[in-house]
């Protein structure tokens, strides 16, 4: 089956209907005083354009995402304005992931180096996972040996996906990860979805289980792992630590209904993302129930109208 469509007409976008002016043009549209007092107005929720003047630099200090020109603070990215006392910054809508200590991330190994792995975590630099910060076979707490260094590819090799926590930062700003918990480690039995990191909110727990037999790991870096549900008592390494199972590359048997559910959840995430809806556990659950109610197949979600209807019904505020 194959179908062709046209690109949308270049001038069809409604946001361009109104006349737009250069910010220097003192017209009725542009009132620079609008930003003079941020707290008093709802303008904090407004999106900035790069190059848009925000406020006077004499009254405010420039923060991230802004620069000063002609004694005015000007946004350098598209995003939302944030203000702390006299500090004005703009948080970009689309940016790379800004790590913070304690964040849960999903990453992919890009390189194996002496005593460390390089991990792509959608950040500006590759993250580092030290051999000393992973669980080694034969006990959770033990010193690393030379034999461990020689078989690092036995734990993680290039391309492997893992879930980890941000442990610390290096002096150059790269993050250091650790997987020293039974919750963390190598990922299997599922597929990866990538979303803009800003859409993943900080939740109580980033390990979600949907009732359809699907586990979700919402990495704060925008990588989301959707996989088959593993019962907690069957989780590897519960009694003793089974390195074979934890670092296994082999998938379990996955039945068709689970596969369908995984594919459906993936689609829901894609639809919500394309409508720029932040993901939360409650929202994903509601969305899943909605699609089941409408007896759709995962394929229906490819249709634009269906996706629009889904978003309209579960996130009416959007």
């Amino acid at each position: 089956m194959i179908s062709f469509t046209s690109f949308p007409s270049r001038f069809a976008e409604s946001s361009y209907d109104s006349t737009r002016h250069h910010p220097n043009v003192k017209d009725d549209l542009m009132d620079l005083d609008e930003y003079e007092d941020f707290a008093a107005q709802g303008s904090l929720n407004k999106l900035t354009c790069p190059g848009e003047s925000l406020t006077s630099s004499q009254a405010y200090m420039r923060g991230h995402g802004t620069y000063v020109d002609n004694e005015e603070v000007i946004a350098s990215v598209a995003g939302t304005i944030e203000r702390v006392n006299k500090l004005v910054s703009v948080r970009a809508i689309r940016s790379r992931y800004n790590p913070e200590v304690g964040d849960l991330v999903v990453g992919r190994i890009t390189e194996v180096q002496p005593r460390r792995w390089k991990v792509d975590a959608n950040s500006r630099q590759d993250a580092v996972l030290m051999l000393s910060s992973v669980n080694l076979p034969g006990g959770v707490q033990r010193r690393k040996l030379e034999s461990d260094e020689l078989q690092m590819r036995g734990f993680f090799e290039e391309g492997d996906l893992l879930v980890a926590e941000v442990q610390a930062f290096f002096s150059d700003g790269a993050m250091s990860l650790h997987t020293r918990s039974l919750k963390y480690g190598k990922l299997r039995n599922g597929q990866l979805v990538t979303v803009p990191p800003i859409l993943v909110r900080r939740l109580k727990s980033h390990f979600l289980t949907l009732p359809c037999g699907v586990d979700l790991i919402l990495g704060l870096n925008g990588y989301i792992w959707v996989s088959k549900h593993v019962k907690t008592n069957e989780q590897e390494g519960e009694e003793g630590f089974d390195a074979e199972a934890v670092y296994s590359n082999v998938n379990d048997d996955i039945d068709d209904s689970t596969r369908n559910a995984i594919s459906r959840v993936t689609h829901i995430i894609r639809v919500l993302t394309s409508h720029f809806v932040p993901l939360t556990d409650v929202l994903l659950l509601e969305a899943y129930e909605w699609t089941v109610e409408h007896e759709s197949t995962a394929k229906d979600l490819l249709q634009q109208e269906f996706g629009d209807a889904l978003v309209a019904s579960i996130a009416p505020s959007q």
Partner: peptide, 12 residues
């Protein structure tokens, strides 16, 4: 590059 588990998931 994708992991062995992803590859086998897709192939299966």
């Amino acid at each position: 590059s994708i992991s062995k588990a992803e590859r086998s998931y897709i192939q299966a």
